[in-house]
């Protein structure tokens, strides 16, 4: 493995480990734990702590967690589904959220490019709406869609659709709404299109581009090279934002994904579940960053192996 590849992998691993430590510290300092929520008598606390694996100091628990992690053991849920293995609990939600997130990321990038290409008043108006927070936009869309459809159903204008009422029914329309919100709302689209626009302007005013233009040479190859890399780096930067948005969007749209599960687990002080989901999120972020660094190293001839 080259020195640069080793550096990328080490950074990724360090990111994941630091994220676990930070998350653990946050959860430990937050008031209350899973035992508090079970309202036991103080006499029952030691037995419950032992049963839930919460005995020992914070440092001991962190070391125990990291040790288990090294063997692939994510532990046992202590709040969301007490007694259930964390691996089985989070597998479905993580897969679901990963699918939503990947599609949303692709859409963000595509929409950012389109916004740059088709710049105009209409795009500006849609951009303005997309600046609204995801939760607010979700409530407005769900409320207005439901009200309009129900009105039509009551007036016998149409029959009740299979997806009605949002967001109660698990339907592709609900997924589509979630993807649109993830891709655009809370300024996601606006920031991405700004990034693309900035990258395009930077490229356009670069001395080597101006020199090529002066020589009347084609800049297509340079554009693909430069903007391709910028797009990959933009996608990598968007991943943490997307993961944050999943927390809100999934909760508001009642989607049983990793975001909604993280929220619930944090409320119930289900430390093993939050840590496992944090691990998945940190891994996704580190992977995206590593991929972007790898792509830059591969594409940019100025960076050595």
């Amino acid at each position: 493995m080259s020195k640069r590849a080793t550096g990328i992998v080490s950074t990724a691993l360090l990111t994941v480990l630091l994220a676990q430590g930070l998350l653990f510290a946050l959860l430990t300092t937050a008031p209350g734990d899973a035992v508090d929520l079970m309202s036991p008598s103080s006499a029952a606390r030691p037995a419950l702590e032992e049963a839930l694996g919460l005995q020992g100091s914070a440092g001991q628990r962190l070391l125990r967690h990291l040790g288990n992690l090294a063997t692939g053991d994510l532990g046992m849920s202590v709040g969301v589904a007490p007694g259930r293995s964390v691996g089985s609990l989070i597998a479905g939600p993580v897969a679901s959220s990963a699918a939503l997130g990947l599609v949303a990321l692709f859409l963000t990038i595509a929409a950012a490019w389109l916004a740059v290409v088709f710049d105009g008043r209409r795009v500006a108006a849609v951009r303005l709406v997309a600046l609204l927070p995801a939760f607010l936009l979700a409530h407005i869309l769900v409320g207005s869609t439901n009200a309009a459809v129900w009105w039509g159903v009551q007036a016998d204008w149409w029959s009740r659709p299979a997806w009605f009422a949002l967001p109660d029914v698990d339907h592709s329309l609900r997924d589509a709404l979630a993807i649109a919100l993830l891709a655009a709302a809370s300024g996601m689209w606006a920031e991405a299109s700004d990034d693309v626009s900035t990258a395009w302007q930077t490229f356009g005013s670069a001395p080597f581009v101006e020199a090529a233009r002066a020589r009347r040479e084609s800049i297509r190859g340079m554009a693909i090279h430069h903007m391709g890399l910028a797009t990959i780096e933009l996608a990598a930067r968007r991943v943490p934002w997307l993961l944050g948005s999943l927390l809100v969007v999934e909760r508001v749209l009642l989607i049983p994904g990793a975001g909604a599960l993280t929220w619930k687990a944090a409320e119930l002080r289900d430390v093993p579940v939050v840590l496992a989901l944090g691990l998945a999120a940190a891994t996704a972020t580190a992977l995206a960053t590593a991929l972007a660094s790898g792509a830059r190293a591969a594409i940019d001839p100025r960076l050595g192996p």
Binding site: A30, P31, D33, S39, L268
Partner: peptide, 10 residues
């Protein structure tokens, strides 16, 4: 939140 309530109040 529920856990904070139990810890801080109770």
């Amino acid at each position: 939140g529920p856990a904070e309530w139990k810890r801080r109040v109770w």
